[in-house]
Amino acid sequence: MQRQPVLVYDGDCAFCTSSVRFAQRRLRPRCDATPWQFTDLAGLGIAQQRAEHEVLWVTPGGAVHGGAQAVAKLLMSARGGWPVVGALLTLPPVRWLAHGAYRVIAHNRRRMPGGTAACAMPSAPRTQKRA
């Protein structure tokens, strides 16, 4: 059983990887961060298709939060004033706006700073890599 939350992200995406590294350095969230490609997704109760689609926050109890709500949970676990920002992202209507913004960024991540063609959302099924 995991002792702290796990942030699962797309390790093939340079934008995603850069964003997670930035969060780890600057926000110092209380979680483990791991690319889905090197994670036992089944053990966390996550379908590969979902991991390809959005960042995921998995609690020690097994609850899974995706997309903007995963970002909110990450912020709520950070130090400083970030937990307040994370809490705001869970409240309507901010939550709805955050969801829309997350979807736009996720669908355009290859165009974001640090993004590459590998950041494009998959159009065909990929096989999960094992570590």
Rank of each mutant, 00 (worst) to 15 (best):
E52R: 15
T59G: 09
T59I: 15
G67L: 04
H53L: 05
W57L: 03
T59E: 07
V71W: 01
H65I: 03
K73E: 12
W82M: 13
P83F: 13
L74V: 13
G81H: 14
V64C: 04
V71D: 04
W82V: 04
K73R: 15
P60H: 03
S77G: 13
G81L: 10
H53F: 03
G81Q: 12
A63G: 11
P83Y: 12
E52Q: 09
A72I: 05
K73G: 08
A70C: 05
T59K: 06
A78T: 15
A68K: 09
T59W: 10
L75W: 00
V55M: 02
L56A: 02
M76F: 10
V84H: 11
G62D: 11
K73F: 08
V64T: 08
V71I: 15
V84I: 10
E52P: 05
G81M: 14
A72G: 05
W82N: 04
A78I: 08
T59A: 06
G61W: 14
G67S: 09
G66K: 01
V71M: 09
G66Y: 02
G66T: 00
V55L: 05
G66A: 13
H65A: 06
G61H: 13
V71T: 06
Q69V: 07
A68V: 12
S77K: 14
V84P: 07
Q69H: 12
W57G: 01
E52I: 08
V58I: 13
H53C: 03
A63L: 15
R79K: 15
G67A: 06
A63T: 13
H65G: 07
V55Y: 01
P83H: 12
G81E: 05
T59F: 08
L74K: 01
V71A: 06
L75F: 13
R79I: 11
A72S: 08
A72V: 09
T59Y: 08
R79A: 12
W82A: 10
P83N: 09
G67W: 00
V84A: 10
E54P: 05
W57M: 04
E52T: 08
L56R: 13
T59R: 02
A70L: 04
G62F: 06
V84C: 07
M76W: 04
A78W: 10
L56C: 06
G66L: 01
